[in-house]
Each structure stands twice: as C-alpha cells, then as structure tokens.
Design a protein around this nucleic acid. Sequence first.
DNA 1: GTAGGGTTAG
Length: 660
Amino acid sequence: MAIWCRNISSLRRSAINRQLSHLIAPYVSGQPIRCRSTKISDAPPDIRRVNKNITNLIRNGRVEDARRLFGMLTHRNTVTWNSMISGYVQQREIVKARYLFDKMPQRDVVSWNVMISGYLSCRHLEEGRKLFDEMPSRDFVSWNTMISGYAKAGKMNEALKLFNCMPDKNVVSWNAVISGFLRNGDVKTAVEYFKRMPERDSASLGALVSGLIQNEELDEAENVLYEFGESNDGTEDLIHAYNTLIAGYGQKGRAGDARRLFDKVPSYSSAQGISRKKRFERNVVSWNSMIMAYIKAGDMVSSRELFDQMTERDTFSWNTMVSGYVHASNMDEASNLFSKMRNPDVLSWNSIISGYAQTGKLELARDYFERMPQRNRVSWNSMISGCERNADYKGAIKLFMEMQQAGEKPDRHTLSSLLSVCAETVALFLGMQIHQLVSKTVIPDIPLNNSLITMYARCGAIHEARTIFDNMKFQKDVISWNAMVGGYASHGFAFEALELFELMKCLKVRPTRITFISVLNACAHAGLVEQGRLYFKSMDSEFGIKPEVEHFASLVDIVSRDGQLEEAMKVINTMPVEPDKAVWGAVLGACRVHNNVEFARIAAEALMRLEPESSGPYCLLYNMYADAGRWDDANGIRVLMETNNIRKEPAYSRMGSASS
DNA sequence: GTAGGGTTAG
C-alpha cells in the first residue's frame, strides 16, 4: 500500500495517524488507506511513494501536514529532506527550512539550491550568497538561481558579475539576465544581450516581446519579432509571441497596428505534416486578442465582424464579445449574444448581471441572478454594487444578508460597496459594523481604506476618518487625499481642509478636479476670497486642470458671498461653460443676504428656466420684493406662480406667513 | 508526476 511505516498498527492507533490517513487518502492512488496492518506492514519501503505524498501535500498548501508525515518517517532519503525544505521555502518559512537544512545528514547540490532560492525569494540576498559561496560544488541551477535572485532584486551589477564569471552559461542564464534588464527598464541592453545569445529556446523570444511591451516599447517588440521570429530557433512559439504583441497593441488602443500584425499571420498554414502546435497560423487566442483590441478601441462593429468570421469560438470569445457590449452599454446585443451561447459559464452570467445592474436595470439583473445555475462572489458583488450605484440602498443590504445566508464570504469589493451605502445614507452605526467586518476579513487595500475614510467623513465622524487616513502612511493615493480634504470641507473645517491641501502639494501629490471642488468650497465657507481666487487660478496654471462648471460655481459662490455681486456676474458672463443651477443658486442666495434685488431677479429668472417646476426662486424673489416693500413686484411673482402652476413647497413656509 | 534555475498570448 502507499504509506510505508515500520510499525503501522501502533501508528494507526494514534489520533494523528487517523487524521493523516484521512488527508493523505485522496492523494494515494485515489483510494482510502486500508487499515489492515498485515497488508501494509508487509509492503516494501517505498520512499519514492512517501516522498510523492509529501510533495502532494505541499502542493495543496498543507505543509504542516507534510511535516507531520515527515516527522513520523523512519526512512528518509535526501529527496525527502529536499522536498520538505522546498515545501517550507514555498511558504516563505525560511527559518523552518533552514532548521531542516542544518539538520539533514547529507546534502546534495539540490539541497543547497533549494535553500539558496528560499533566501532569495525572501529577499535575503546576503544569506543566499553566503550559502552560494560556501557550497562544495555548483551546477547550472545554482548559478542561475543566484543570478536571477540578483536580477529580480534589481541588482543587475551583481547579476552580471556572476553571469560573466560563470564557467558555462546555458539558455536559462541568458534568459535570466535579459529578463532582469527588462524588469529594470533597460530595454537597450536587453535587446543587445538577446542578439548575443548563442542559442534561444521557445521562451526567449516570447519573454523578450512581452518585456518590451511592458516597457511600452511596442515598435521595438515588433522589430525583434520580425528579426528573430523567422530564424530556426524559437519559432515554435512564434504565434505565442505574435499574440502577445497583438494583445499589447490592443491594450494600448492601437487596434490598427494589432490588425496589421493579425493579418501577417496566415489563417491556415500550408505546411502539412507538422503538428498543429508547431504551425505558424492563427489560433483562437489570436482571434480573441484581435476582438479585444477592437473592443478596447471602442469599435464594436469591427469586433463583431471578426467574431462572426470565427470558425472556432471558445467561451472566452463569447465572454469577450458579451462583456464588450456590456461595457458599450449595449445591453440588447449583449443579452442577444448571451442567449445564443454554448454553455455560458459563471463569467458570462456575471457580465450580463453586472451590465444590467450598472445600467440601472436592477430587476433584469435580479432576474438573471436568480436564474444562474451557479453563483460566485463576483455575482453577488455585481448585484450589490449595482444596487448601491442606483441608490437602492435597502436592496444592497438585503442582498448582503442573503449572501451571508448563502455562505458566500464578503471580499473587499463587497465591503467597499457596503461602505458606500453607509456613506450615502449617512449610516454611521452600520458603517462601524462594516468596518469591524473589514478588520476581521481582509487586509484593507488603498481603495477600501478610501471607502472607510469617505464613509466616516460623510457621517461626520471626521476624527475616525482622519485616523484611517493617517494610518495609511505612505499608502495613499489621490482619492484618499480627496476624501479627507472633501470631508473637512463639507463639515465646515475649512482650515483643516486647506492645510491638508497644502500638505498634499508639498508631498507632490497631484490634485484633481475633485480636490479643487472641495478646496474652493472650503474657501467659500470660510470667506477666503483672495485665497479662493488664487486657488482657482492655479488649477489651470499649475496643474493644467481646466475649470468646469462646478469650479465656476464655487468661484461665483466665493465672490458673491463676499458681496461682490457685480464681480460674480462678470465671472458668469465670461465663463466658457453654461452656468447651471448651482451657479445661479449661489448668486441668488448671496443676493438675498446682501439685499440686491436686481441681480436676484436675473438669477431667479435663470433658475426658473433651468428648473421650471421649482418654487424656490419664486419664493425667494417674492420675499425680497416683500421685504423691500415692493408689493407690486411681489404680487407679480405670485401671479406668475399661478400662471405657471407653481405650488409652494412646504420648505418655503416662510412665504406663507409673509403673505397672510 | 520525487526535490532545485529562466520564461511566453486572450
């Protein structure tokens, strides 16, 4: 039988063995361990088999189980030790690995190599190098491990030193240094070394092309593809490399270039008798990549054309096309295509659901959601975030409860949506509970921390928001800053908002249009007229942000609150965008405070045009006329209201008392 | 398919 132990019956009695047999069973010839001691104890010691079990446990992430098995063995060979050490290395448990390494009776070159690679993957370069220098003999792997360790850590000088004094380099050594150059952005040297390589294998060209694409060197990638793609070496995976570049062009929105490359690849190879794998011809990935390129460029017509031409589509092709339509907000085509599918998988269903949910068709989304054969976390998240974005806050919470009942655990996306719900509904208590859930279930990343800040800030818990913000230390993005600056600004902490804004500029965090909305708002509330003007000017002059209508509204607000109503009108008359109700609302409010009836009339009339149903401007103007004793004008407004069938809203009860 | 190095497409 599969497990060999010297004294199997005593082992069997022990609890640990019961556990072990349970967990080893699936990996041993698919059969549970039979506890008939005669059969097992008669079995010959098969270390290879035991080693395999250890490896399998490790492969399934059960290193400690492997360790328990390892500890029970009476016969181990070097491979047993090496496997166990490698298990710890994979788990980054370098101390435990080293303990075994020091304890093992005999080491071979693999033991050293495993240990070295363990140190390198934990970024302990010096320790790795120490072992490398100590080891009695080295093979290719030892050298290459060390070289790639240096290359990955960005220490190309050290990598090259080793590479140059390496007695015999193989293709892996070359690949390691070249990918090191590429990772460090040294494209030129990478290509140079690639050209100098004595031999290349199937991965060399593909790795170079992909590395060049990551360095935004798409044209260079195309050059090397032509120069080296045709040579005898490395042509096996030529289509792979072509596809890489087609996809690369696609991601950069260069659908034309992608197509040019796509057209260079024959649809069918004329070479007969060569295995399909080795022929240079379009495969389904080429087609799918090209379709994606068109979708990325927003050309749904061409992508559909290509899709229709395909003779062999896989689920990926269908899903790409469906999600393309979803992103183009063409839900009719998306669902049309979806209804024609081979087997929609969970991704296909999720595309449709999120498409409907994001476009506000929550009932349709729910309908598909109910019908899908299998749901995953993304399905739930799509529904919840759809509800949140369409202001169905109750629906979002209800779905979350259903999700928990269904046994699906929330992830950062779920929690982020829920925090947005709390922020929108100013539900501080629920928000705090979600915060607890965050602490329990995930390590918050930047977006999730931003959601927390926004939630607390919206709920007025500005100190809580600031605590999260400060705890993020250097892990902030501009959204974190915006959330905090905006939180201060909207709760009347103008000074704190501006202080933070200045700090953010000092730290070279580039503000966005959102930042300036908060900053200008803070200035408006704090009455900082000149500072507000300066900030407004700096938007374009310092940061190249063209002011939009919201910013103009703030500027108008700033100057008109200060009583500079003529100045406000000048801004409105010269601004390049159409003034909206926020702009005129600011003017009207200031006119009321500063008692400027003439400008109030202009502002109110503009508002009446923009919002014909609202009684607000009528009421305000009425009150102003009444206060000024201009009863004719006041009555004129009343008549106008009756003519236009405007009913006063309860919020404006002040007018009722004034008129009666 | 017992352990160690580089690396490639949607």
